[in-house]
Nucleic acid binder design. Sequence first.
RNA 1: GCGGGCGUGGCGGAAUGGUAGACGCACCGGACUUAAAAUCCGUAGGGCCGCAAGGCCUGUGUGAGUUCAAGUCUCACCGCCCGCACCA
Length: 855
Amino acid sequence: MARYNARESEERWQRAWDARNAFVVSNDSSRPKCYVLEMFPYPSGRIHMGHVRNYTMGDVIARFRRAQGFNVLHPMGWDAFGLPAENAARDNVNAGKNSGINPREWTYANIAAMRSELKALGLAIDWSREFATCDAEYYKHQQKLFLDFHKQDLVYRSEAEVNWDPVDMTVLANEQVIDGRGWRSGAVVERKKLAQWFFRITRYSDDLLAALDRLDKWPEKVRLMQKNWIGRSEGMRFAFDLSNGGKVEVFSTRPDTLFGASFVALSPDHPLTEELAKTDVKLRDFIAECRKTGTAEAEIETAEKLGYDTGLTAAHPFDPNWKLPVMVANFVLMGYGTGAIFGCPAHDQRDLDFARKYKLPVLPVVVPEDADPKDFEIDNEAYVGPGRLANSRFLDGLSVEAAKAEVAKRLEAEGRGTRTVQYRLRDWLASRQRAWGCPIPMIHCGKCGVVPAPASDLPIRLPDDLDFRVKGNPLDVHPTFKHTTCPVCGGKATRETDTLDTFVDSSWYFARFADPTSEDPVNRDAVNYWLPVDQYIGGIEHAILHLLYARFFTRGLHATGWAALDEPFAALFTQGMVLHESYQDETGSWLYPDDVEKRPDGSAVIKGSDRPVTVGPSIRMSKSKKNTVAPMSMIDLYGADAIRWFMLSDSPPERDVDWSEAGAEGCWKFVQRIHRLVFEVEALPPPGAPIGEVSGSALELRRATHRAIAAVTEDLAALRFNRAVAQAYTLTNAIQTHADVGGAVLREALEAIVLLAAPMMPHLAETCWEALGHKTLVVDTPWPKADEALVRTDNVTIAVQINGKRRGEITVALDTPEAETRAAALADEGVRRALEGKTPKRVIVVPNRIVNVVT
RNA sequence: GCGGGCGUGGCGGAAUGGUAGACGCACCGGACUUAAAAUCCGUAGGGCCGCAAGGCCUGUGUGAGUUCAAGUCUCACCGCCCGCACCA
């Protein structure tokens, strides 16, 4: 018998599926819908193992649900705007070969390459719905949405401090600033105020938080991360009167500790600080000093508290004669609350550190219930627990909660302050000084200000002839792009040359898939039919940004009338990474796996030499560590099915998986094993042949078959792919053990293993299905159903414990009454011996499970 | 620092509070073969006793606890991983 030729078979079935548009799905169907989506890829040029794992999981769910009778939408697209394309164009220029490469060509070439790689995986995707976010046909609609959001005041323009790279002349995202320097140029990043476009995500702060509770099919971890990111805290804003006649407003979650205040502190960036600095040289120096502190993690952690006494004083809100010094402090952030605080050292660690350094009073005002207020002292640790108020005049004796309420009541009565809810979440700064992104459809007019571009002008198209020899944004210096007329007054005007953050592109693509040909940004009916996505799958690295933005955007679509829902993803699954061993030569240089040879004694050398190789731990595959394995080379070697199988085996899907050649080899062997089982079998009855009463080995095989059907069905529904794989092995072993029963029972078992493995190894399944005499395709075959009567067993073997230790086992009929089970257990030879004639005090019988004898 | 997660054979990992180690990988023994590969069969947590069948002890990071019964629940500790971070 010939070995299974995976590549040949895979190409054949991929053509067969294509030919009958097997995965093209219609928007109206009487079947229940199921929308399966994996986070779409950035077209970097090559798929990597992470993609393979992600898309294989989604594909298994899509094929499984399809077989179960769902109308399954499983689309694919390209998150195609972004920096790498611009960098490629720029590198091309710098290398002196300005051969006309531009981001568009680079991107579409990558898409073409990656599409063919994804197709080689045999994914059950409706390719008719494919689009790239850099298609004018897509960003045209995004521009329309931008205008709609603008009308609803969900978009605005405002001054903001940004990370400015003075060498590359561009804004950098926070994560592109490494140790205070631009990741590309290495230049020290400047803080710069620029007018930027924002999405008003904070309008939904509370809703985005509250709705997390209802996302019960999301990982707890992700919900928690979003919760912390939104960072809701309840407190008060209130004002202090200053000795210069002014006021300063502070925010506090602990107004109850107001009588423990010993200073008021302003952020170095606070407007009042800047005002004072105009006439205070030393303060100017201090501010400069504060700004020198880097943004690096380690620096913040070890940063010393720095303060500067402005000489001003602030009057205590409840005692005008009580004057507190007004300091400028480096640990007060302008971006949170009001940029000013009152310091209560006894009950806040930062305030305490600050007070100790600058010799300010530390007065405890909250005392734990079990402590004596007279002896309670603060050493070097602030007390943040519950307790009773002390040293606090009219608050004395109250609980923390009651004191907060009392302070709030009094301050509000005096009109000095209000209870507020403060969020950590800030509005989404979405403009980028980049050429390869969605142009922001706004126009700057000298007379009329900033006005929206008319919807009829959309798309505002990116020009192809961008000049990447210039620093900064090529759109700024393009001869025509920028120049236009004002839609209001008709005078000369300029276009906005900022483009949108690529996270905008990925914030609504799932809605576009519902009907990618719609004349409108989205087809309302199609969106309301398909959304929410029933199963979304992607990496944990998007836990906050992408998933939060998409949740916001869906609310925006709702507010602008494009959709009737708020939450885009009903269920979320975050899969683990693909790891690989890492290799270094004696100089520490990284080596590709292909250049390393493993010797039988366990050592490793550089292929074709005796130079030793240090084998490092398994870490995430990355180009810099060279521990990557190209999926296509593995598919060429073992076929897509074996690689898909590998990606689902062993490791639970949410955990990292370690890629190894040996593992892939093992999967290939299993592919062959199933192929052999089906092709070596002799003379089976035709499909659909009836199965009569069976017993013995045949009954065993039927039971194994139906148990596997039940188990795999359950495991796939719960995304426990690794267990489904194990069940498939178990059934395969059973088939091999009982193969000699032949006939309709063996046919039933073989058909079951083929159908159960089909979502994971779809090509092999088609080959085997055909060999089993079927004229139809597996993709058109319904999911098998388990016969409950066969899943249950007649007899159960249960353990008998004596005082919790296993001392024997008995086999009884299923659902044997308790008394009988007890008798059988006590009659067991081993149990009697172990009891040594002792009389049991108690016998616990858990039917069908266990017997525990207590002496 | 705060928040969250995880610790089970040589390895990846199974296990509604009920026979720990399913299934796979690797290893070892055997069959087939001139030989190798491939394939098939078999043993296997550790320790002790036994020619053997089998039996006993021990065992899920450490220590306590709850329970007839704990990998699973509770508390404390140790280790590793992830997220956030001067958020008032």
